[in-house]
Design a protein around this nucleic acid. Structure first.
Length: 662
DNA sequence: AATAAGAAATCTTGTTATAGG
DNA sequence: TTCCTATAACAAGATTTCTTA
């Protein structure tokens, strides 16, 4: 314990200026994603690090210590820095802490404003400040730690295993408890907290067939614990599960078939892509069910996210073929990060799960982007699109985790740019072969349904979807996307769409925290775009698209990588695009949701289109003067910086730093 | 002996419930 | 009373391993 306490102290706790100490204790600024750490992502991160310090607010000592720690932290070496910086703010007043963060504890709420907000700001949350309880590791509660872990990730989402890793890495107390023997207890508690607290949203990440992503529910968490969402999760899980099983199993088969199956995949994709509406009633039902369930809880969020869900299938496809195939399995949940591509696919999927999936599809970056976008959106509503940057980052992250598995997807990502920019789309496409299908783009189209979904409370997750949805509606956007570069766009789009409500929420939290610098950069551009374009909701979506575009433009001029998929998409779309572009300018793109088909068709494409894509994009972009590409520079900058920086990590890392109010 | 398919065992993930501070 | 932690149990899926044909 003593150690733990020390550790806690170690954690840096800072008080955010932003927050009102009193109200919110805000306890912590979590370490945002620390760049280095890359940590952010567990896997990736190395980061991590933990914070060894924890601080307790209460304890004066601690406080002092904490401050010291911070100071130290800064300097701290690698992880030290890392250490997750959890900066907790000590809110003095009891009031402050949102959740239970006890003072020291970083309750989630405390963590960031955003987080807090997310959590619910729980003001109610109780900030408990007092030193009351500290846990062996410090004042932070499990929920707080989890929140930190999640927020520390660039993407703001982590898988369970990643959370475990983070704990081990970042929290001294758990460092030596990582072994299976000793970890059972606290891991169980972690799981318990994730499931129990509304503050945490589970996003399916089927792509890999692996565990779901866990995100902080911007809205949710309010009170710390919120009732749980179980139902939701459960439901989702079901769907998801099914997907998983399928995915994995199918993978092989699919893989094999995949190549052939590309067509299939497309078909499957088409399903998903199809807006919910397009989907079978069953699917729809599922959605609804999820929603309803989700709504109940944070977990619901998951539903939201799902938009992106990775489709297991997609994932599989990706995985398998990476390129090849995509045999679409069924549902497209968002594919895992890698899947980004899948994400595209997922897009289509309306699945509730989709909500969940979103993350995946989005990939970490996406998520971040989304968040950013959202925030932007929220502010403006017009969603700025950004996507690119974050995406990149995200992907990076994603890659970390899943990257390998994805393989094919990885390929996509490998581009980095792609991944980054588009994520889902690009990647998928690229990866999968049929990624095009993946394109969530299609999904984008589906919007209508989506929209409805979004509205659901859990939006967080929805964000992803929204993207999807919004996109759908956006179609125009789609066109834009096409123009831009589907790939990147796709994601971007997603992001954008997502931004909506959820986004806003998330944004607040996420933005503040995570995105940080990079995001900032990105955001600006998008915003501008948005402003220009945005016509209402569509506008937003548009913005998103635009954002996406820029990304492409910036990121990839040639983004050949994305190329294949994109190219395909573009090719198909291009026609549309041309039309769409105007729309974009005009504001609402007439895009018929139905375009999906086209998108779907994309699958058919094989990857030659790339060249065309670029050209098209360029041309279109040019045409689309309306859009402010201006952002590009920004984006470019951001992206470049990030990328150059070593990719995501670089960006992410930096951002965190910037973040640190320090 | 090599391969594939199926079953079993095990692990992981996620949810729920209960007890206690 | 509320929130949290801790622990246990259960369910389901995923993965690995073993067995069999």
């Amino acid at each position: 314990m003593a150690e733990a306490l020390q550790d806690e102290q170690n954690l840096n706790v800072e008080i955010d200026p932003d927050f009102e100490p009193q109200k919110r204790p805000r306890s912590c600024t979590w370490p945002l994603p620390r760049p280095e750490s890359g940590a952010s992502k567990p896997g990736t991160n190395d980061t991590d690090v933990i914070p060894e310090e924890e601080d307790d607010e209460n304890d004066a000592d601690n406080g002092a210590a904490s401050e010291k720690n911070r100071a130290e932290l800064g300097p701290r070496p690698p992880h030290g820095a890392s250490s997750l910086p959890v900066e907790v703010r000590r809110s003095t007043p009891s009031s402050s802490r949102e959740e239970g963060v006890e003072d020291g504890s970083p309750s989630s709420s405390s963590i960031h404003p955003s987080a807090a907000a997310a959590h619910g700001g729980s003001a109610s949350q109780q900030l408990r400040k007092s030193s009351a309880r500290r846990n062996a590791w410090g004042n932070y509660s499990y929920a707080d730690l989890i929140t930190q872990a999640i927020e520390s990730s660039p993407e703001n989402r982590l898988t369970l295993s990643q959370i475990y890793d983070w704990m081990v890495r970042s929290v001294p107390y758990f460092k030596d408890k990582g072994d299976s023997n000793s970890s059972a207890g606290w891991k169980n508690s972690i799981r318990h907290n994730l499931s129990l607290h509304s503050r945490f949203v589970k996003v399916q990440n089927e792509g890999t067939g692996k565990s779901s992503w866990w995100m902080v529910n911007p809205e949710g968490g309010k009170g710390g614990k919120a009732p749980r969402r179980r139902a939701v999760s459960m439901d989702n899980s079901k769907y998801i599960k099914g997907a998983r099983g399928r995915a994995t199993k199918k993978k092989a088969s699919l893989m094999a078939a995949a190549q052939d199956g590309s067509s299939e995949s497309s078909s499957s994709l088409s399903k998903w892509t199809g807006s919910p509406a397009s989907r079978s009633s069953d699917e729809l039902d599922a959605w609804t069910d999820f929603r309803s369930r989700t709504n109940s809880n944070a977990s619901t969020l998951s539903g939201r996210l799902s938009p992106i869900l990775a489709n297991p299938e997609l994932d599989e496809a990706q995985d398998g073929g990476g390129g090849g195939d995509s045999a679409p399995l069924s549902p497209m949940l968002y594919s895992s990060p890698s899947s980004m591509s899948s994400s595209t696919g997922p897009m289509a999927l309306p699945d509730l799960a989709g909500t969940m999936n979103l993350n995946d599809g989005l990939s970490d970056n996406l998520m971040d982007d989304l968040l950013d976008n959202i925030s932007l959106t929220a502010a403006q509503q017009a969603p700025p699109g950004e996507g690119g940057d974050d995406e990149d980052e995200d992907e990076g992250d994603v890659d970390v985790e899943e990257g390998e598995g994805e393989g094919g997807g990885g390929g996509v990502r490998g581009d980095g740019t792609q991944a980054g920019s588009v994520f889902p789309f690009g990647c998928p496409g690229a990866g999968l072969g049929s990624p095009s299908a993946s394109f969530g783009a299609p999904s984008l189209f589906s919007p209508p349904c989506i929209t409805g979904l979004r509205q659901s409370p859990m939006q967080t997750i929805q964000e992803n979807r929204q993207t999807t949805f919004s996109c759908g509606p956006l179609f125009g956007d789609a066109a834009l996307q096409d123009l831009l570069g589907l790939e990147a766009h796709g994601p971007a789009n997603v992001m954008l769409t997502q931004s909506d409500p959820l986004m806003s929420q998330a944004m607040s939290g996420a933005l503040q925290n995570s995105r940080r610098n990079a995001l900032l950069l990105r955001k600006d551009p998008p915003l501008s775009l948005v402003a220009g374009l945005a016509p209402g909701g569509g506008g937003v979506s548009v913005a998103g698209w635009q954002a996406g575009l820029p990304t492409h433009a910036n990121g990839r001029p040639g983004s050949s990588a994305a190329g294949p998929a994109d190219a395909k998409a573009r090719l198909q779309r291009s026609p549309v695009k041309s039309g769409s572009l105007p729309l974009g300018a005009g504001g609402v793109p007439p895009a018929p949701p139905h375009r999906f088909p086209a998108d779907l068709d994309l699958d058919v494409f094989n990857g030659d289109l790339e060249c065309d894509m670029d050209a098209i994009i360029r041309n279109e972009l040019m045409d689309a003067d309306c859009l402010d590409l201006s952002f590009e520079p920004h984006l470019a900058t951001a992206q470049n910086t990030e990328r150059n920086g070593g990719g995501f990590s670089g960006s992410t890392k930096t951002s965190p730093q910037s973040w640190v109010p320090g």
